[in-house]
Computed example of a mutant assay.
Amino acid sequence: MRFGVLDDRLIAVLPDGAAHDVTALAGPPAGPAGPLQRLIERGRPLSAAEVRSAPAVDVGGAAWDAPLPFPRKVIGAPANYRAHVAEMGNPNTIVEWGVFLKASTSVIGPGRTVELPYTDVRTDQEGELAVVIGKEARHVSASDALDHVFGYTCVLDITTRSTEDRSTRKSYDTFTPLGPLVVTPEEVGDPDDLALRCWVGGELRQDSNTSRMIYGVRRLIAYASSVMTLQPGDVIATGTPEGVGPLADGDEIVVEIERVGRLAVTVSAAGALPYGNRMGVPTA
């Protein structure tokens, strides 16, 4: 089953393609976190029979919103593919770096626009598989980790190559495109064997497989849960393969993950400024 948000309505898409408005089944009004967050928090999956009992909708050509517009946490996995480690020229991997946090306010949905902050500092695309946590996890084992997963979706971890801390460089508004749909585990199968590709301006930049991750999904969830409590609706960006590169005004970024989906956004430099003019730089 797949879940998406369309004009503040929660839409469930069954394996046969039938789509139904299940907003009323998700629980009380959702607030800024959105109706999918409410469904996840209720702790019980919807059955196919429940979905079919809800109003049918036509989602052909739908302009989906971010499925989780304001997650509690967005957790990132740096340097989680060895080929990406090699291209960045730093020997450290996730083993040394650990995980990091991105601001929830950096999330945008499909079809939206990534806003470049600077005219003279490179900002890159990083296509990644995202894991949506469905059940609280603290000190879980790798063997039990997938029991805590609600589903999977596509994410772009947009990154400015400036001097600040990693969380700053990755937390600008619009720097976490997410979606379009969250796919439940039974449709995805093994999350550690999914083809992942990413295009920028029509150029194929990233072409890999999640089997090449240093920490696979199970180990990544186990590790993250040893550091912090994972809560329902938290999003884990699992890291990017080689092929990251600079973005430019007018680019389209597309990330496509096998059995998960296709996420596309555009890029604008309309509000960009020179790096030396950023807030916080001392003036004479």
Rank of each mutant, 00 (worst) to 15 (best):
R166G: 02
G127L: 08
S106I: 14
Y172V: 00
A130L: 02
C198A: 15
G179C: 13
L181Q: 11
G111L: 09
V132E: 00
P185H: 11
E115P: 00
V121D: 00
S104G: 14
D157M: 01
R122V: 15
L101F: 15
V149Q: 08
E164R: 15
E186K: 13
L181S: 04
P180S: 06
W199D: 13
T153P: 05
A103M: 01
S208D: 14
G111P: 10
A145L: 04
T163Y: 14
C198N: 07
W199P: 11
S171P: 09
S162R: 08
L116M: 09
G179D: 08
V155T: 09
G201D: 07
T174R: 11
C154R: 10
G189F: 05
D193N: 15
D207L: 00
S143K: 14
L196T: 06
R197P: 08
S171C: 06
V188K: 07
P191S: 07
V99W: 12
A145P: 09
T113F: 11
T113Q: 13
G179K: 04
Q125E: 13
G111C: 10
K135A: 14
R197N: 05
R166T: 15
A130R: 00
W199A: 07
I158Q: 06
D173M: 00
I158L: 10
I158T: 13
R166M: 13
G111Y: 04
L156P: 00
Y152N: 05
Y118E: 07
R112G: 10
G98A: 09
A103R: 00
G134W: 10
C198W: 00
F100A: 04
D190T: 10
L181N: 04
E164G: 14
I158K: 06
S162Y: 13
I133K: 03
G189Y: 09
D192W: 09
G98N: 09
C198K: 01
L178I: 01
D144W: 14
V188G: 03
V183A: 03
Q206R: 01
Q125Y: 15
T119I: 01
S208E: 01
S167G: 08
R197S: 15
G151T: 03
G151P: 09
V114K: 04
F175M: 00
E136M: 12
H139I: 05
S141W: 05
T176F: 12
R161C: 06
A103N: 00
V107L: 10
C198E: 07
E186V: 14
V155D: 01
D192P: 12
E136I: 13
V149T: 05
P191C: 08
T163H: 12
Q206C: 04
E126G: 08
P191L: 01
S167K: 03
H139D: 15
A145I: 09
G189A: 05
T160Q: 07
E115A: 14
E203D: 14
R166N: 09
S106D: 11
R161M: 11
V149N: 02
W199H: 14
H148M: 10
T153E: 00
E136K: 13
H148Q: 10
V200T: 05
D120C: 06
Y118I: 03
G189W: 11
V155C: 12
T176Q: 03
R205N: 04
R112N: 11
A145R: 08
